[in-house]
Computed example of a mutant assay.
Amino acid sequence: MPKTSDSVVPRIVVDDVQKRFKLRHTHSIKETFVAAVRRKPLTTDFHALDGVSFTVGEGEAVALLGFNGSGKSTLLKLISGVLRPDAGEILTRGRVAGLIEVGAGFHPDLSGRENIFLNAAILGMSKRETEERFDEIVAFSEIEPFIDTEVKHYSSGMFLRLAFAVAIHTELDVLLIDEILSVGDEPFQRKCIARIREMHAAGKTLVVVSHDLGMVSELCERGILLRNGGVVFDGDSKRAVELMRA
């Protein structure tokens, strides 16, 4: 069974989760044919997550830590519902908003205005709720002059601003963040982090993936350290960072 946090009411339960991917060893029909003739394997299984279990309580701020390939981004996508586990179970309670890929869910041929309504709907907001928050979303994003421009003309930083602004203005219970705070200029990063702190203070549950170890150790009180697809430490975030740096 998953490790239980000190919080009474869980928002996220991850129970013995496994996730595998097939790694291809050929890149063309010719390579595939040659490998088949020589009886070489065309694919191998990669165990991104292997028996991961933990719970996240209501109002917790948790950092998922680990080096590249440790499984932290895969785990965040599983919690968000973008991926499904091959074995085990993931349960979430409440509305979950994921900032996992910059611009994910945006339609390139729609304007920023239209994409606000589209993304808000994906996150479970009604048209009325979006209309009520529309001005706040645009003001936070700081891209008002371009709000009626097709988003295919946006820079990655503009994608980030709009995606983040929409997500934090939804009636969410759990916010998932994967590395996107590394995109954009420093003043906007500070603004985002300040807003995340406000949300945490208001009782929202946060799960954060970032290579900025200093930031996550300050933002999150708990750290879950992943290595080779498994949990090797679950406890104080500063201690988790120390173990990762060791």
Score class of each variant (00 low, 15 high):
residue 106 F to L: 00
residue 245 R to T: 13
residue 169 H to G: 12
residue 217 S to G: 12
residue 191 K to Y: 01
residue 224 I to V: 12
residue 127 K to M: 12
residue 244 M to L: 15
residue 64 L to K: 08
residue 193 I to E: 01
residue 180 I to G: 07
residue 156 S to I: 08
residue 16 D to G: 10
residue 159 F to R: 03
residue 226 L to T: 13
residue 77 K to L: 04
residue 117 F to H: 12
residue 163 A to W: 02
residue 139 A to W: 04
residue 104 A to I: 00
residue 242 E to L: 11
residue 177 I to H: 06
residue 242 E to M: 11
residue 69 G to L: 14
residue 149 T to S: 12
residue 17 V to L: 07
residue 68 N to F: 02
residue 10 P to A: 06
residue 3 K to P: 00
residue 48 A to D: 01
residue 220 C to M: 07
residue 12 I to Q: 00
residue 197 R to S: 05
residue 86 D to V: 07
residue 232 V to N: 02
residue 185 D to S: 03
residue 223 G to T: 04
residue 35 A to G: 06
residue 173 D to E: 13
residue 10 P to D: 02
residue 33 F to S: 11
residue 59 G to T: 07
residue 84 R to Y: 15
residue 169 H to S: 12
residue 187 P to Q: 00
residue 181 L to V: 11
residue 89 E to Y: 08
residue 243 L to I: 08
residue 229 G to S: 04
residue 143 I to T: 11
residue 135 D to M: 01
residue 227 R to D: 14
residue 119 N to F: 07
residue 171 E to D: 13
residue 74 T to C: 07
residue 120 A to Y: 05
residue 124 G to N: 10
residue 81 G to F: 15
residue 5 S to N: 14
residue 47 H to W: 14
residue 162 L to G: 05
residue 7 S to M: 08
residue 209 V to D: 05
residue 159 F to S: 06
residue 205 T to V: 07
residue 228 N to Y: 13
residue 197 R to P: 02
residue 4 T to W: 03
residue 30 K to Q: 14
residue 54 F to A: 10
residue 229 G to L: 06
residue 179 E to M: 06
residue 229 G to V: 07
residue 2 P to L: 14
residue 157 G to D: 10
residue 171 E to C: 09
residue 86 D to C: 03
residue 98 G to Y: 04
residue 202 A to M: 09
residue 155 S to C: 06
residue 185 D to R: 02
residue 114 E to M: 10
residue 9 V to H: 06
